[in-house]
Design a binder for these strands. Structure first.
Length: 1039
RNA sequence: GGGCCCGUGGCUCAGCCUGGUUAGAGCGCUCGCCUGAUAAGCGAGAGGUCCGGGGUUCAAACCCCCGCGGGCCCA
């Protein structure tokens, strides 16, 4: 059965059921004799997929389906990223927790269990959503970062790093979230606008009265930790005498900034006392501005340092707190400054901060500013809006804080990483060569430790007595019985201790891994390496991965880093970087903007295949500005596909028996050859698009081929052929052609529109499987996905014919245009169509004469190289007047007497000779006049001239057709069966349609036609206006 | 401040790598056609400073430089 209306939801329901009941995916999965190793970038288990994730999986599915049809055995394990802060934060919110202490109080064991339940529950929800996208992955056997085997792989990897000397515990300034009380990686910091104080502070120079070096900062709370001031060695600085409220003092700032600083401080510049280079300032001592408040600072020697990172902005002197800034830290190392960090995990000052002890740093800014003001050290205060880092999950502003953390020394393998990038195929090219390389070459050592609970425990144990470190590389080394995945998490793992050689007790460092490290090991953890070796040796590295461009710093990076550390090579061979999904205005979709479009919403409206076509229609690496209207268009296209197949189905099932018997009697007509050539070219483009990951190109090719060429043109051309008597070779050939087109094109497109393609395979291709077997020698399979991707049959490609058909279509369009101008309906036959053009057009007209004639509905067509037109010339008085003056009159006479040939030669030469002088042709206006009765229209390769004059004979035919049209419509209103006969009564004269009565009778299946009828009896009556004539028509069913 | 990408009719995009007819398509709009695929289908028309400015060239949407706007990433 073939429902007349295309209902995506019904089709989906049926196909999904079919796949499920017959375990099609499982069967397809077994096929293939070459390996294709795909690694899924694990989505984070938030519980809901969004458009971007949907798009991402659809891209993956298209590639995987294609590869399967190319006889690959595809490794398609989906992945889930299930550890880390995002889930902890969600669970904390659920339990109404505010700080880590709440978690400890509640019990880490219970908390971690909750996190795991939450993650698993979300995984289930999201799996269902992905399934609805018709994504075929091994949903029953995903890889999960929380599984013991997975953790085993992560531990093995970090052990590798340790053995190679690439794992270090270091004191470093890290991004710190005071709410989550943990270090964060660069990748976990999100930059957002924030308003902060912007203050200029005077630091008193030691031993010089009323002399200050002026610094600028947006983080007053870091001032208690100030250890130095940095200046640029090559800049010029000044000591200037300035005056305010009658009081004089001296300030040191960069020379170029003196004026603006003075203005901010409302100073009057008296004079420049001294000028020096930055170098000369090195070692200059000053007093800490808050040494009274922070007694610790009293014993510290503060002085000026040199640093290249200083820029000519604000004051040109930079406040240095090695405990609160990365640059500051490294500068501090150089100068031997103390890494003073008087702030604890929660962002609260410790006792070392003196007066400020116990104060939250977020509340400290105003207190410190007040203190500075009181002490007369605040030169100026304002506010500034700037981009500032925030915790990616809880959105708290991050702080920089020196702490001891575990690092993977990326800086030492960076060169190798860059070399490996070159060996990978990047789509597009610049994703690797420019973007990713830029990120990697700027990468610092990777901080992999987090002071949290829900993550892979870092497998490092340290002896309490001698400090010896033990890193374990496998869960077996734990020496405990592992009954569930929870056993390899905190707090169970924390309970494990080892005995040190020194006799001391080794305890695990309490940290867990950065989640990016989890996903970084995915390509071998998914193969359960190192526990299982065979698959890894056979498959690794990945043949293909694809993710959004945000993963440059995320998964592309974490995988490369982890893999170079473990194996000295990139873990992937090809990477397709895709874009972001934005709203239709190009803005990021976010809950706060309220512009989030849910995938389910779109699927409900247009169906999964239309959704897939839509997201696959634009270049994958470009951002996708989502527009529902655009997406709906693809539903319309699929509707056309549906109707085209249904059209074929209707006739072909009627003639099925004849078709089976006669399917070997094939005589291809020119239009058949044409569409078969187009079919091969379409398959070629699609194959190429999929091979090169230019997946959008196939969508366009499909619309061009199936909608434009097959449905809108080929089916129009062969309409009359399917109405021929049973088993005519011409009809059989059309059926053969249609079968081949639908068969091959659906196979080619099935990776894109799996549901529709499968449905058509089940209901159309299967219906004609005997024929398919007989003529194409291909046995029907259980599902279209057990078929292979169509072979390209080069022999069928005829580019010359395709070109010719383009001309024919053009001619048809130009003719429609001319008809419209002349108000001649397509239904009305016309006498003559003249086509003018070059050799190409000539050839096309010769090849496709019949097609052009029928489609354009003309009795005759004629090709000419040059259509004869009358040339007429008129004098251009405006131009001619000033040149010819009084001779204009005789010039006019001369021009009027010129023959057509003379005029043509004038046009050719561009000059007109008059009374021995050569004049520019612009003195006359040349006009071409086409002969009476013709209407002209242009097309790409030439022009057409349509003869639109009517004569009596033609007009009768026109009227006959008009009447037929009306009667047909009335039949439809009456709901008559196609085969039923009728009686017809007309209120017009018989002479009206003389000669066409048989035609009308035949067309409308009439038994009897009565003219000038009085309509006596039981007629279905309707009055029509046919070209100004009132015509009354009655019909009735023949009994 | 830096890196990368994008900017083409009202909308969404193709074309750019490899410069060369009149810059294409779909949607929308206006007008019309078709009527045995019909709760469908089809055609025509209008609509463009190819973001702006320079340069290279006989020739630039396309190559180069400088801006402007948007996105992603970094400082």
């Amino acid at each position: 059965m073939f429902p007349p209306i295309y209902s995506p939801s019904d089709v989906e329901k049926e196909v999904f059921q079919f796949w499920h009941d017959n375990r099609i995916y499982e069967k397809v999965k077994k096929n293939g004799d070459k390996d294709f190793f795909f690694v899924d970038g694990p989505p984070y288990t938030t519980g809901e997929i969004h458009l971007g994730t949907a798009w991402n999986k659809v891209i993956k599915d298209v590639i995987l389906r294609y590869k399967r049809m190319c006889n690959y055995r595809v490794r398609d394990t989906p992945g889930w990223d299930m550890h880390g802060l995002p889930i902890e934060v969600k669970v904390e919110t659920l339990l109404k927790f505010k700080t880590k202490r709440d978690i400890e109080k509640y019990g880490v064991s219970k908390f971690v269990k909750k996190c795991m339940e939450f993650a698993l529950e979300n995984k289930e929800k999201m799996t269902e959503q992905f399934k609805r996208l018709a994504v075929w992955m091994d949903w029953d056997n995903p890889y999960m970062t929380i599984k013991a085997d997975y953790i085993n792989a992560a531990w093995w990897t970090i052990k590798r790093a340790y053995d190679r000397g690439l794992l270090e515990k270091k004191l470093r300034v890290v991004n710190w979230c005071p709410r989550c009380e943990t270090a964060l990686a660069e990748a976990e910091v999100e930059y957002m606008d924030k308003v902060d104080p912007s203050i200029y502070v005077k630091f008193p120079i030691k031993g010089e009265k009323d002399t200050y070096i002026v610094i600028w900062t947006t983080t007053p709370w870091t001032l208690p930790a100030n250890m130095a001031v940095a200046v640029h060695p090559d800049y010029t600085y000044v000591k200037a005498l300035v005056k305010k409220d009658g009081k004089e003092e001296k300030i040191i700032v960069a020379k170029d900034l003196l004026e603006s600083v003075a203005k901010k401080g409302e100073y009057e510049i008296v004079k420049i006392v001294e000028e020096f280079s930055g170098k000369e300032l090195e070692g200059l001592e000053y007093e800490h501005p808050l040494s009274d408040e922070v007694p610790y600072q009293k014993d510290v020697k503060h002085f000026v340092c040199l640093a290249d990172f200083v820029v000519v902005e604000n004051t040109g002197c930079v406040h240095i707190a090695p405990g609160h800034g990365a640059d500051d830290f490294y500068l501090g190392q150089k100068y031997g400054l103390e890494v003073f960090n008087p702030v604890d995990d929660r962002g609260v000052y410790t006792d070392k901060a003196g007066k400020y002890a116990g104060i939250d740093i977020r509340k400290a800014n105003s207190i410190i500013i007040e203190d500075l003001k009181r002490k007369g050290l605040l030169l100026h205060k304002e506010e500034i809006t700037h981009r500032y880092g925030h915790c990616w999950r809880c959105k708290s502003p991050i702080i920089y804080r020196a702490t001891e953390q575990w690092f993977v020394c990326v800086s030492r393998v960076k060169e190798k990483m860059l070399k490996e990038i070159d060996k990978v195929q990047w789509i597009p090219d610049w994703a690797g060569s420019s973007r990713f390389k830029d990120w990697v070459s700027n990468a610092r050592d990777w901080c992999i430790s987090r002071q949290r609970y829900w993550g892979i425990p870092i497998p490092v144990w340290i002896c309490e007595r001698c400090g010896k470190i033990k890193v374990i590389g496998s869960i077996d080394e734990l020496g405990i019985e592992i009954n569930s995945d929870l056993d390899v998490h905190r707090p169970r793992v924390d309970e494990v201790t080892f005995e040190c050689e020194c006799g001391g007790k080794m305890k695990r460092v309490p940290d867990v891994f950065d989640v990016w490290f989890d996903s970084g090991v995915a390509s071998w953890a998914t193969l359960r390496y190192p526990k299982v070796k065979e698959e890894f040796e056979k498959l690794w590295p990945a043949d293909f991965i694809t993710e959004g461009h945000d993963q440059t710093r995320g998964w592309f990076y974490s995988q490369l880093g982890a893999s170079v550390i473990a194996f000295d090579r990139a873990p992937y061979k090809a990477v397709l970087m895709h874009g972001f999904s934005l709203d239709k205005y190009g803005r990021k979709m976010s809950k706060s903007l309220g512009n989030v479009v849910k995938p389910e919403e779109v699927l409900d409206r247009i169906g999964v295949d239309a959704f897939r076509l839509y997201v696959l229609s634009s270049a994958p690496w470009e951002d996708l500005k989502f527009s529902m209207e655009e997406a709906e268009m693809y539903r319309k296209f699929l509707n056309i596909v549906w109707n085209a197949v249904r059209f074929a189905y209707m006739y072909m099932t009627l003639d099925k028996e004849e078709f089976i018997e006669n399917c070997n009697k094939i005589e291809l007509k020119v239009e058949d050859k044409w569409i078969l050539s187009r079919l091969e070219n379409f398959c070629k483009i699609t194959k190429d698009a999929l091979e090169t990951y230019n997946i959008h190109k196939a969508v366009k090719a499909f619309v061009d081929f199936f909608v434009e060429d097959f449905s809108r043109w080929y089916i129009q051309l062969i309409r009359s052929r399917v109405w021929e008597e049973k088993a005519s070779p011409s009809k059989m050939t059309a059926y053969f052609t249609i079968l081949k087109v639908i068969d091959k094109s659906m196979r080619a497109m099935s990776p894109y529109i799996p549901v529709t393609a499968e449905w058509i395979y089940q209901h159309f291709i299967k219906e004609f499987c005997e024929i398919r077997e007989k003529v194409f020698e291909s046995k029907i399979k259980e599902s279209i996905f057990m078929e292979s991707f169509p072979e390209i049959e080069e022999d069928f490609i005829n580019n010359e014919l395709e070109e010719a058909m383009k001309v024919a279509k053009d001619v048809f369009e130009a003719t429609s245009n001319a008809r419209q101008k002349a108000k001649r309906k397509l239904r009305w036959p016309l006498r003559l169509l003249v086509i003018e053009g070059d050799e190409k057009v000539k050839k096309a007209v010769k090849m496709l004469e019949e097609i052009i004639k029928t489609q354009c509905n003309v009795k005759e067509i004629k090709y000419v190289e040059k259509f004869e037109k009358k040339v007429k010339a008129q004098v251009n008085y405006k131009e001619a007047g000033p040149i010819l003056k009084d001779k204009v009159r005789s010039f006019v006479e001369y021009v009027n007497n010129m023959s057509e040939e003379e005029l043509m030669s004038v046009v050719g030469s561009g000059e007109i000779e008059f009374e021995g002088k050569k004049l520019p042709v612009s003195l006359i206006n040349i006009k071409y006049e086409i002969p009476e009765g013709y209407v002209e229209s242009e097309f790409s390769y030439g022009k057409i001239y349509l003869y639109v004059e009517m004569d009596d004979e033609l007009w009768k035919e026109c009227l006959a057709r008009e009447i037929v049209r009306r009667i047909q419509e009335m039949r439809k209103i009456m709901n008559l069966n196609v085969e039923e006969y009728i009686d017809v009564a007309l209120s017009c004269k018989k002479e009206f349609v003389n000669g066409w009565i048989d035609y009308i009778t035949r067309e409308v299946r009439a038994k009897n036609i009565e003219f000038e009828s009085k309509f006596e009896g039981d007629w279905f009556l309707k009055e029509w206006d046919i070209e100004g004539e009132k015509v009354k028509i009655g019909i009735k069913r023949c009994s």
